[in-house]
Design a protein around this nucleic acid. Structure first.
Lengths: 226, 226
DNA sequence: TCAAAAGTGTTTGCAATACACCCATGC
DNA sequence: GCATGGGTGTATTGCAAACACTTTTGA
């Protein structure tokens, strides 16, 4: 595979995770200039023989070890002076990873990588803060009418985990009984014959997302709405 | 102003208009190779001294004569073989124009330009059909919770025009009294002391969109929803 | 037996829907 | 007078919000 890159074009990734009931984003500590040593979004350049989706998927796999991560394009960012060393336009993707199914790898251009709570971000270089804010608002928007939140949860989860996910991302609180009913009425969850273990209270039933059912309902005009 | 361009990067515009109660898109007839003579989306290259928004705004003004058209970025399209003469990634914007406030100009690379009903499109070159479909679905999505539909109507319009706009774009029918009440309850329209003229029925009151009120309501957490 | 979360039941009020009806205008 | 759209009134229904309540588990 040729590694010849398209010079004025990069991809950057906003990787979201949900850990300890709060929304987190994966940042890398830059080991290259410019902005050496700063925490920043992971990224890379686009090669001549791959499309932009593939470039983004490659970067995501490099950093998380996961193939086929959920990702979606946010858009292109192209202020004239956004990158100090030259005119580089970047295409941004945001991605969602499930807890415990990845292995963080800083990559060749970074000395470290870790999760940051989206409410406690370090100073970011270039236009990365703007990119992150836009990703977050797109995520919030998408979550309202697409069931992509399941990509932030383990395959099997109790209902409260789903509720906490929405509460953390929108910074609101829901009534548990009502939330429960709303979700169950959609018929998008498959109840499992498994329960939580090791909790200091009544253990909850686990569910998994029924993607097939969602797809078939969507074809019939069903619209997911939170 | 330097006209030096960034070679592997173009902008394309999906310009929507609302004419005769149906949603239309502006296409140009290509007067350059490749795909000479085909109807296609208008576009151009990005210059070194402008950001991508500016590049898109420039293209939009070239074709419609209107400065400051409503526009929003759809995203970047970058299949390896999308353009036959070389690797060109394009950043797409969709724009909305009000009836009668523009003057169509094919531009230097086209021999003609005209509106096409989105349901009766000619054959399009490259990935332009995919781009158009994605623009349309983004437009439908955005229209649901942002009052951008007013950018497709004249400044002064009767309520039925707004209803017809939503009906045409979503291909549904609404109950007139209910639609009316729903809109009026939002308090986003300023009733004018003007009426339609030259219609063969009772003339309707005209309204204009109250952008200031929308902005202030939005700050307070109001969410527009159709 | 207490804390904490799981899970059920029920009341209430708002808002979308459906539809009957009268009003104004041009031909 | 009749066709066409403008515009108002009102009954019905469904559903989301609020909250009281019982159940299960671990410590």
């Amino acid at each position: 595979m040729s590694k010849k890159i398209i010079e004025p074009l990069s991809v950057d990734s906003v990787i979201f995770g949900f850990e300890e009931a709060s929304l987190e984003v994966l940042l890398i500590k830059r080991a290259i200039k410019p902005s050496f040593g700063m925490w920043a979004l992971p990224g890379g350049f686009i090669r001549y023989d791959e499309n932009i989706d593939q470039a983004s998927a490659r970067v995501l796999e490099e950093r998380t070890g996961v193939k086929g991560l959920f990702m979606e394009q946010l858009g292109a960012f192209g202020e004239v002076d956004r990158f100090p060393l030259g005119r580089v336009i970047t295409v941004v993707y945001y991605a969602l990873v499930k807890p415990g199914q990845y292995k963080i790898n800083p990559g060749p251009d970074a000395s470290d990588a870790r999760w940051f709570n989206v409410k406690q971000l370090p100073e970011l270089p270039f236009d990365h803060l703007k990119i992150l804010e836009r990703s977050l608002s797109r995520l919030r928007q998408q979550l309202k009418y697409k069931p992509i939140g399941f990509n932030l949860l383990p395959d099997k989860f109790p209902l409260l985990a789903l509720q906490e996910l929405y509460e953390a991302i929108y910074d609101v609180e829901f009534d548990k009984p009502n939330f429960r009913r709303k979700i169950m009425k959609m018929n998008l969850l498959i109840p499992l014959n498994e329960k939580q273990t090791g909790v200091a209270h009544r253990s909850a039933r686990l569910y998994k997302f029924d993607k097939k059912r969602y797809d078939s309902l969507t074809e019939k005009g069903f619209i997911f709405e939170m």
